[in-house]
Amino acid sequence: MDTISQSPDNFHAASGSYNFAYLDEQTKRMIRRALLKAITIPGYQVPFGGREMPLSYGWGTGGIQVTASVIGPEDILKVIDQGADDTTNAVSIRSFFAKTTGVETTTETAEATLIQTRHRIPETPLREDQVIVYQVPIPEPLRWLEPRETETRKMHGLAEYGGMHVRLYEDITRYGKIATSYDYPVIVNGRYLMRPSPIPKFDNPKMDQNPALQLFGAGREKRIYAVPPYTSVKSLDFEDHPFEIQTWDQDCAICGSTDSFLDEVITDDAGGRMFVCSDTDYCGQRMAAHDASDETETNQ
């Protein structure tokens, strides 16, 4: 096929008998059509014919199919799992695409053109020439409210989203504040209610007016949705209980960052703990910059 001839030379050697990026061209075409529709209707969930992937549901089958459909031979891929580049999911998906496409991979956010992520948006701001693909477990934000798919579709169609605030009301009643901390529902482009996938609400403001194209793939539920560049993404809230992101008392124990999302790491069984950046690349970059400036100081 023509498309194969476009792939880099090293691809043929590595891929054996698989097509470029594993999926066959017809499947990619179908997914791209779903993606185009998703981009034209921001936040709307487009059904697609999800394929069986060589990893189990819940490990990123949706994201991997979206990535496979948009990746080209010139792309530089970064894969994030909970902010880290070196955890199981990130390593295996990265090596999967390295093997089936032969594209260059990276751990640096600024260097990547395509980023597949699970649970985080990188701390380094994204650019217009980047695409970020989210892995989504449950795409339907109204599911907890209404179990029937026919009914939730109707609710989306008529923009009947008032019930979503019931959950926030319950949070405030029980905990005195909105306690929902991840997968925090948003309204996209003033119209569709969307689940941003299980990213912490800390990352919600980054989605708003982001210059990068944001794509979402749910493999088990077979849904694709998207937020085009520079689109408004507003988190739900009450007038007297506005949306707030998480804050920490500490700074990152490694790089000293004061404005990144921190993970709590238990260090022993005697109550020892430390807070470190969840975005390993961001933390590493800061340390590298710090070391470099130290060196210049000593050289002087």
């Binding site: 009947e160 008032g162 019930g163 605030h165 019931v166 959950r167 009301y169 319950e170 405030i172 009643t173 029980r174 809230d237 009450f238 007038e239 007297d240 209980h241």
Partner: peptide, 24 residues
């Protein structure tokens, strides 16, 4: 009734459905 949420939320649901966005 919505059995999974408090009495207050059950009453508030219709208000929120027609656009009330002030918790108090």
């Amino acid at each position: 009734l919505r059995m999974g949420v408090s009495a207050g939320a059950n009453i508030g649901e219709r208000l929120m459905a027609v656009g009330a966005r002030h918790y108090g």
